[in-house]
């Protein structure tokens, strides 16, 4: 490790190119919060934007060969071989931010996707709903699966039925997979848990087309990271990006200062935001 003043560190920040395009996206905002948080904790940052091709070809990030960089923060969900290669080669402390694959023996900071959706669904159940559907995006990213399991867990715990026909796809699926849109006939649930804000928006549009209103006919909850509750939306579990960024920089700086001890995955609490 280079001999620098103990009160100022230099860290590398790795983000995927695709995640920098939209700065209001989850990762777009997370990366900005990390840079600001690092600045607030007297950290210099070296940002490295990784193109898809480098990720696929497992090209090592440049900041790993930079003498001054003392630790690395990796933001996003990456191809496994790419991340494994970095973990093997890196000699400096490393923290993953929202790489939810528990497969890696590396410190990771994750948002509470599972528990968040569990709480949001529990809120519906507490309000008396027994028939609760789920709306999910096309992605099969770990965060989407976590939220799905959160919804499922809340239902099963309460002894409520998980009905496949009430799991709706808010986006077109890749070729070969059949999308399940809003049920044409049969009984409707009285509430939906939407995986994210976009999925909730899609649901609101579909319901409006069918002449159903929120929350009178159908109650809606979701998990989100920014923005207000949608009109009529009952509750949203809001992930705390700022707390995640703060935690990640703190953990990394501890590892740099006091030695690289692996301590595991930390989940960062969000907050259930209720209407009224």
């Amino acid at each position: 490790m280079k001999n620098t003043k103990p009160d100022c560190m230099s860290i590398g920040v790795l983000v995927q190119e695709a995640n920098t395009a939209d700065r209001c996206s989850f990762y777009g905002m997370l990366f900005q919060k990390v840079v600001l948080e690092a600045a607030g904790q007297e950290c210099l940052t070296m940002l490295e934007i990784v193109p898809k091709a480098s990720e696929q070809e497992c090209v090592l990030p440049r900041c790993l060969s930079n003498e001054g960089i003392q630790g690395l923060l990796v933001i996003g969900t990456w191809e496994q071989p790419y991340l494994q290669n970095i973990l093997q080669q890196a000699e400096i402390p490393l923290v993953l931010l929202d790489e939810s694959d528990a497969f890696y023996a590396c410190d990771a900071i994750l948002p509470e996707n599972y528990f968040g959706m569990y709480q949001a669904t529990r809120h519906l159940i507490d309000m008396g709903h027994q028939n609760i559907g789920f709306v999910r995006p096309a992605s099969t990213a770990p965060c989407v699966l976590d939220r799905y399991f959160g919804w499922r867990c809340a239902l099963e715990e309460a002894g409520l039925a998980v009905r496949e026909e009430w799991i709706l796809d808010s986006e077109e699926l890749p070729a070969g997979k059949r999308r399940r849109s809003f049920p044409k006939g049969g009984p409707l649930p009285t509430a939906f848990a939407a995986s994210d804000r976009k999925a909730a928006l899609w649901l609101a549009r579909i319901l409006e087309k069918r002449g159903l209103s929120i929350p009178e006919d159908i109650a809606v909850v979701s998990v989100s990271y920014d923005g207000n509750l949608l009109p009529g939306q009952l509750a949203s579990y809001r992930l705390d990006l700022e707390a995640m960024a703060r935690r990640a920089v703190r953990v990394l700086s501890k590892k740099i200062r006091f030695g690289d001890n692996y301590s595991g995955i930390r989940f960062v609490d969000g907050r259930l935001e209720k209407r009224g």
Binding site: S10, T20, V35, L36, A39, L44, T45, M46, L47, E48, I49, R62, C63, N66, G68
Partner: peptide
């Protein structure tokens, strides 16, 4: 900033940010 970070890696520059 993003463009600078990208230009830095293309131009063989290690760019450290201080806010």
């Amino acid at each position: 900033y993003q463009q600078l970070a990208q230009a830095a890696s293309q131009e063989q520059v290690g760019l450290l940010l201080e806010v």
